[in-house]
Design a protein around this nucleic acid. Sequence first.
DNA 1: TCGTGAATTGTGATAATATAACAGAGGGCG
DNA 2: CGCCCTCTGTTATATTATCACAATTCACGA
Lengths: 159, 159
Amino acid sequence: METTGFERHDHGACIRDGVSAVDARCRELGLQFTPVRRRVLELLLEGHRALGAYDILDRLREEGLGSQPPVAYRALDFLVKHGFAHKIERLNAFVACACPGESHMPAFLICRQCDKVAEAEADMRDGRLGESAAAVGFRIERAVVEAEGLCPSCQGAAA
Amino acid sequence: METTGFERHDHGACIRDGVSAVDARCRELGLQFTPVRRRVLELLLEGHRALGAYDILDRLREEGLGSQPPVAYRALDFLVKHGFAHKIERLNAFVACACPGESHMPAFLICRQCDKVAEAEADMRDGRLGESAAAVGFRIERAVVEAEGLCPSCQGAAA
DNA sequence: TCGTGAATTGTGATAATATAACAGAGGGCG
DNA sequence: CGCCCTCTGTTATATTATCACAATTCACGA
Ligand SMILES: [Zn+2]
Ligand SMILES: [Zn+2]
Ligand SMILES: [Zn+2]
Ligand SMILES: [Zn+2]
């Protein structure tokens, strides 16, 4: 999987493809892709941005799909648990996975200006951190990697 | 700086040195290393473990050093802002910096069993993430890198 | 030494994020 | 139908973090 999210792309297709990929995957795995779950995924796909659980909840409320925190959190838990979305710890917020289906150790590039989030691949078991860990005998199982900075277009705007 | 925290070491010295390093650094920079701030740093140094703000606050309360959340948060903000401690986003908790004074891009190895935290160095601008970021023109300014897994002694215990 | 402004602390209130607990709805299947 | 299982609705509560403002302490120069 390559970094994406900062590049121009057909975003309508991006949403449709994201939803239908997850739909297919749920069928495969016998998971229930219910209306709330589908809608939450759509909301996350809308902007390549991280959304807080309460942002999601507000939208659901407007649409009559649920009004209490557990509704949003349950849908998000489902999506995260099955790898269809990720939590950005730094922001206490969530993004749709850019490549649902493949299991991976995601890394994120977060623009501090426009809040867009791109997903990259960076298995931490390779590289310097992996070496340091191996050196002390630490076994890495999962990793939170969240890089913050300026995306290309915000660098342009700043100049 | 090397990973530390999982290896045996003279921990009394570890605390003393940590505190006096910060003390010296504050003198250099003209910062006020007040009793609350000092005590919070000592608490963080106590276990090479991440402590939540309210854990800290409980200890402060017992000791009559303050009883409301802002007291703990302000001390933690001070320590984090000046690089004497770090926040572990994954845990909403804080650890003392293993090498106060040097500015760095820290990475953490977090044992999911015993909750110990070791600090490693892993500048994300190198390596695969750096390449991915460069490829899309993203400029990394800071990074949260938190690897979770099993420390050497917990691997031993599990077997 | 004393006055002055800035930094720090005390305190009550509240915001933002997240979970617990349990009752109800719905569907597949004997 | 009756049972089991998953998902949903709802109330309440836990956990993490910040705001606002008054009181105090500190650094620093007059
Ligand atoms: Zn898109
Ligand atoms: Zn941007
Ligand atoms: Zn130590
Ligand atoms: Zn351990």
